[in-house]
Design a protein around this nucleic acid. Structure first.
Lengths: 236, 236
DNA sequence: TAGATTGTTAATCGATTAACAATC
DNA sequence: TAGATTGTTAATCGATTAACAATC
């Protein structure tokens, strides 16, 4: 009987697909027309079989002996990740991190367009940052409801993060990109992705400590090839 | 004979320890003196056994029926991750992201202190951002050699990232915190941690797409509890 | 004491890696 | 044809989860 459910791609695969996308863009700029998993793997120091498996998730069919068309692979990855049609987003918290995101040109090519920012600081309200207007936080719920904005970006201080998330949910948002070091409570059906800079720093500092400690002992080991192997994802 | 090597904690554990640290800081501020793994797990929606396993890596010994002293647990996590003695860092690329990091107060409590920034833009050189001076990139190698700065932060455009990494290595740096969407080549013994914002966004957008697609089908499923479970790490 | 929690070992689960046939 | 690569299945590896004794 017919229940051969396709397993949804795990998050690590999604993260790596984003890396492949970036590599492919560079290869395309260099005039490359086809590419093999072996080649992509070399660029990122990944196992070619792993690259294959990840690409399999997009459903694209390649040519034995040749590989994939760079252009076509870029397109299927974009479709797969939902980067093909741009989604509109509201950003809350026009501090330095919020400002950096508002100025991050690449977001558009990743399917995200920040169309307004919100803040509670009267000094900031009414100003324009990187071409995006800063509105009072009170307008968030109503505006997102009316404009059907589904994605919210949280770049506020810790204490306010949950409150802002609640407002986003109240406004009908369905995805929250959270840059505050806080675990947000949201109802079922709302997606949260945390960008935890402290977690990234934890990996960096521990591995540095380990490398220095090893060296002191005069040992040599595998600390060298130090790229975070799997879960480099989700970073920034 | 006696080779009972302790397995080094995997990166996912390091990432979660950073999350526990943040939770513990909040609990401490709330006046809490002891805490159990169950409690920490509730805060983050993690399995308590997993929390236990992670905390085990720090070597702390708890009390059955009680848990751990919040204060002591904070200290051992900081020691374990290498956050106890502040490390000095140089940042290269004084754009909006670099500026945001320079203004990120919390870094100091995560054991990192950015003591100088570097850029090639004459407009920026000589200025001071969040109390940190911006120096010409030419000075990077010599200064890091002389000051024994071991950590470099890369917040430059893609094309320059590898060049900057090379300079950091030339300056004797041993750890690179890379915010550019590029896979850096560095010699053995140099640690690289990538913060890939695109990877985080890939997870967010794919899961949003899935949630919306499911809803259209009128199905209900487990999409709801949407916190990225394991590899939330490596992010901003 | 009773029972929640630690500490630890075993079972499960899932991702990575290896193996290999099919193919261009 | 020869051989590199895709596509796919099986084996391995490692992390998560379950089970349970020890303990406060």
């Amino acid at each position: 009987m017919g229940g051969n459910m396709v397993q949804p791609a795990p998050n690590v695969t999604l993260r790596r697909l984003a890396l492949y996308h970036s590599v492919l863009q560079r290869l395309q700029k260099d005039g490359r027309e086809v590419v093999s998993c072996t080649r992509i793997g070399e660029e990122l120091r990944f196992d070619p079989t792993q690259v294959r498996k990840d690409i399999e998730a997009t459903g694209i069919v390649g040519k034995a002996r040749i590989g994939y068309e760079v252009k076509a692979l870029l397109v299927v990855i974009e479709e797969f990740l939902g980067w093909n049609n741009t989604r509109e987003a509201f950003l809350v918290g026009a501090g330095s991190l919020g400002t950096a995101l508002l100025g991050y040109e690449r977001l558009k090519s990743l399917g995200l367009s920040i169309i307004a920012a919100f803040d509670t600081n009267p000094q900031k309200i009414g100003s324009t940052i990187h071409g995006v207007e800063v509105l009072p936080l009170e307008k968030l719920v109503d505006l997102s409801r009316r404009m059907l904005v589904l994605v919210g970006i949280i770049t506020v201080p810790d204490e306010s993060a949950q409150t802002v998330a609640d407002l986003m949910v109240a406004g009908g948002m369905r995805a929250v990109w959270n840059f505050a070091p806080v675990s947000l409570a949201v109802p079922d059906g709302v997606v949260v992705e945390d960008v935890q800079i402290a977690s990234s720093l934890a990996v960096l500092s521990k591995r540095l400590s380990r490398a220095l400690a090893l060296e002191k002992k005069g040992e040599d080991s595998d600390v060298g090839n130090a790229h975070a192997p799997a879960a480099r994802g989700q970073k920034f």
